[in-house]
Design a protein around this nucleic acid. Structure first.
Lengths: 205, 205
DNA sequence: AAGTAACTGGACTAAATAGTCCAATTTTTG
DNA sequence: CAAAAATTGGACTATTTAGTCCAGTTACTT
């Protein structure tokens, strides 16, 4: 139950295999959702034997948790890359354009990998907690960018950056969900433009 | 394949049974998602024999489609009720308060029933289309309310009401998703307040 | 009363799936 | 080299699940 009999890899090779399993599972989950991803499919996609999967993970839930962390790494990695040097409204608009462009390139399919996981797993305590932490981290990326924008414009930081960040993240998630369902980037564009205007107004930029 | 061998009920009793099946399935799907709702569970919850389910629905997908329509009826019914007489910013804020209060009453669990369905079923053509239509209808409810707000304030209707509506719906969906994951109504409140400010600004109210 | 639709209930199939167990082999590392 | 770790692969279990089939029963309608 609570004890996790899972082995951690003790060699570089083992770590690579474990990572290969997680990568394959992450991709399958992104494409089909957790419930429609079978262990057998992960085995085939990662070229690993079933024994190895149950060597590194105690059960499917354990693997799913690793998938959440991996997906969070990917998504936050991408956005942190885009947001890191951002310190102006123009930069924020370039981030918006990049997100819209990425969405367009996939025909709006899939939505946000983290958002989809959240919708599927937010009623399960452990997975919900992991996803909430990821969202909090994501929001804090925005918050840091907003702080830089203020600093650059010579304002002293005001206190509601976290709230601004959550509104921005909500717009992004809602926009991506509607884009996915309606197969159009327009809802995403509208939601992000609204959020950017809101940020500009609150930050008085 | 394309031909749907499903019988339509020909008596009031039959219609009631079919409705009972859909109601039970809708509730189970809302609580556990489509993938985690089994036909056997629907049978138990609706007090109906398996034969009847396959009498009225050709397969599980067919039932799921009916569930989508039913859930759309419920959600749109609730919101139409709240939005119908709405013709002012104050009314929009009351709607916001009602949504937040409903979310708080369920401890932020579940999220938006339609949003959850969208996240799970937006990669399947038929279900995606049904959900997209529901969202479009929902957005048009907002659009009509915004038009009344403009009329009441003596403005002539401007052309981007549909865009405003999509931004509002995106905020709502994103806010509900974050609320569900973070178990706090705050992201929802922030997202809706942002959207309301945006509407007020665009409508010059 | 007769016909039609609704309904039951259970037996049944076929497939998918998570997870276990183990014996043998290969690779890495100290 | 020798020990430890990684890996294979398959057999195996137990359960769940969608969906079929059918024979008999109940209720409604005209």
């Amino acid at each position: 139950m609570s004890t996790n009999a899972t082995a951690l890899p003790k060699t570089a090779r083992g770590a690579a295999t474990r990572a290969r399993i997680i990568d394959a599972a992450t991709e399958l989950v992104r494409a089909h959702g957790v419930a429609n991803t079978t262990i057998d499919a992960v085995i085939e996609a990662s070229n690993v034997s079933k024994s190895q999967i149950y060597h590194y993970f105690s059960d499917k839930d354990d693997l799913v948790l690793a998938v959440i962390h991996r997906q969070a790494e990917c998504v936050l990695g991408t956005h942190e890359e885009l947001l890191r040097k951002l310190n102006s409204l123009a930069g924020l608009r370039r981030w918006r354009d990049a997100v819209v462009e990425l969405t367009r390139q996939t025909n709006c399919a899939g939505g946000c990998p983290l958002g989809s996981l959240a919708a599927e797993l937010s009623e399960t305590p452990r997975t919900r907690a992991a996803l909430a932490a990821s969202f909090a981290c994501w929001a804090s990326c925005f918050g840091m960018a907003f702080a830089r924008m203020q600093t650059r414009a010579g304002k002293r930081p005001s206190g509601d950056l976290r709230e601004l960040s959550e509104a921005m993240l909500a717009s992004l998630q809602g926009g991506l969900l509607l884009a996915q369902t309606m197969r159009s980037t327009r809802p995403l564009e509208l939601a992000l433009d609204m959020a950017i205007e809101h940020v500009a107004a609150r930050l008085k930029l």
